[in-house]
C-alpha cells in the first residue's frame, strides 16, 4: 500500500474524510462513556453543550483557543520553512516570564504603554530563545528538533527554580508561584462583564498578520521557497540561512505571545501549570490547519472546543475526567489522518 497525491481534490474528497473522522470520534467517545457507565447517546450532546451550549461555555472555549492560536501560528510559520520548532512550550514560558518580571513592579507605566511594551518584550524574549537553536542549526548543522525539544525541559526547570527562588511570591503561602502583575499590566476584557480578554483579539490579529506576511511579502515568499526546496532557493539567490533565522525570530515571538496573553489576560501570575502543553498542542493545531495561518484559528477553536466540551461532559455524565483526554487524543489522531486522506489516496502497489 502506498499514498498517492491527489492533484485536484474535489469537494467530496476535501470534506468527506474530516466528516467521517468527526463521526468516528463521536462513536468512540460514546462507547468509552458506555464502558465507564454513562449513557452513550447523551455524550455528543453533552460535549457540544459543554463547548458551545451557553455564553459561558463559548467564552471558555475562546479563552482556551487563544494560546493555541499563538502556538499554532508559531509552529505553522516555522514548519512552512521546514524549520522544526518543537520548542513553542519553552518560548511560551519565556514570554510569560518576561511579563511577570517586568509587570510586577519593575516598570510603572499607564496601561496603554505598559501592555504594548510588555508584549514587545515577551516577543523579543521568545525570539531570542529560538534564535539560539537556529544559529546552532545554520552554523554547525545541529538538528533543531533535538535542541528545541530538549530546551523545553531545561527552560521549565529554570522557571521552576525561579519560582522557588527569586520570583517566589512572598504572599503565596509557600506555593511556587510568582507575584501577581500590576493592574496596569492586565489585558482588559473585550466587553465589560464578559470573561473574554483582549488576548483573543490579539491572536486573531496575529493570524491575519502572519497570513499577510506569507502571501504578500518577500519574506513570506522566501520562507515558502526555502521550505519547499532549499537547493533551488539558494541557487536563485535567496539567502537561505538568513531566512531561517528570520523564521525563527517570528516563530519564537508568536509562541511567546501565548505566554504573555495567558499571564496578562487570564492568570495574572506565573505558575508551572500555566500551560498544559499548549506548545505541543500547537503542533497539532498547525498540522490540522495544513500550516495555513487562517486555518490555525479554526483548528484552534476545534481543539479548544473538544478540550472544554469533553471536560464538561465528563463532569456532567459522571465519568472520570481522563476520558476527556482520551477523547481529545482520539479526535486529534483521527483528524490528522483524515486531513492526510483529503490530499492522498491509498492505492495498492
Amino acid at each position: 500500500m502506498r499514498l498517492e497525491p491527489i492533484e485536484n481534490p474535489g469537494i467530496a474528497r476535501r470534506l468527506g474524510p474530516p466528516a467521517l473522522a468527526l463521526g468516528a470520534t463521536v462513536v468512540i467517545a460514546s462507547l468509552l462513556a458506555m464502558v465507564a457507565g454513562a449513557n452513550p447517546f447523551s455524550v455528543l450532546g453533552l460535549i457540544l453543550k459543554g463547548a458551545f451550549g451557553s455564553q459561558f461555555a463559548i467564552l471558555e472555549t475562546l479563552n482556551r483557543a487563544t494560546p493555541l492560536i499563538f502556538t499554532g501560528l508559531a509552529v505553522a510559520v516555522a514548519f512552512r520553512a521546514k524549520f522544526w520548532n518543537i520548542g513553542a512550550e519553552a518560548q511560551l514560558y519565556g514570554g510569560a516570564l518576561v511579563t511577570v518580571v517586568f509587570g510586577t513592579g519593575m516598570l510603572a507605566l499607564p496601561a496603554y504603554s505598559m501592555l504594548p511594551l510588555l508584549a514587545l518584550l515577551a516577543v523579543i524574549a521568545g525570539a531570542l530563545l529560538l534564535l539560539v537553536p537556529a544559529i546552532l542549526k545554520v552554523r554547525f548543522g545541529v538538528d533543531e528538533v533535538v535542541t528545541t525539544l530538549l530546551f523545553n525541559f531545561i527552560f521549565l526547570l529554570f522557571i521552576s527554580m525561579l519560582l522557588e527562588g527569586p520570583l517566589k511570591d512572598p504572599m503565596g503561602m509557600g506555593w511556587p508561584k510568582s507575584a501577581r502583575v500590576l493592574p496596569e499590566a492586565r489585558l482588559p476584557r473585550i466587553v465589560e462583564g464578559l470573561r473574554l480578554h483582549w488576548g483573543f483579539a490579539l491572536a486573531l490579529i496575529a493570524a491575519l498578520c502572519v497570513w499577510v506576511i506569507q502571501t504578500r511579502t518577500t519574506l513570506g515568499y522566501e520562507m515558502r521557497a526555502v521550505g519547499l526546496n532549499r537547493e533551488a532557493a539558494a541557487f536563485a539567490g535567496i539567502p537561505v540561512n538568513r531566512v531561517l533565522l528570520q523564521t525563527a525570530l517570528l516563530s519564537g515571538g508568536l509562541a511567546a505571545l501565548a505566554g504573555f496573553s495567558e499571564v496578562s489576560g487570564l492568570k495574572g501570575s506565573l505558575t508551572l501549570d500555566l500551560s498544559p502543553g499548549y506548545g505541543y498542542t500547537g503542533i497539532i493545531v498547525a498540522m490540522l490547519a495544513l500550516l495555513n495561518p487562517l486555518g490555525v484559528v479554526i483548528s484552534a477553536l476545534f481543539v479548544a472546543g473538544i478540550f472544554v466540551g469533553a471536560d464538561s461532559m465528563s463532569r456532567a455524565a459522571g465519568v472520570p475526567t481522563y476520558l476527556a483526554d482520551i477523547m481529545l487524543a482520539t479526535a486529534l489522531l483521527l483528524m490528522v489522518l483524515a486531513i492526510l486522506l483529503t490530499r492522498f489516496r491509498v492505492v495498492r502497489g
Binding site: Y221, L228, N229, A232, F235
Partner: peptide, 21 residues
C-alpha cells in the same frame, strides 16, 4: 527540477524566483 525551479510553486512564483527582490 532540483535547482532550476521549485516544483510546488506555480509558474508565476517560479518566474520571479531570481528577481523578486
Amino acid at each position: 527540477h532540483k535547482t532550476g525551479t521549485i516544483s510546488d510553486f506555480d509558474l508565476t512564483e517560479n518566474a520571479i524566483l531570481e528577481r523578486y527582490k
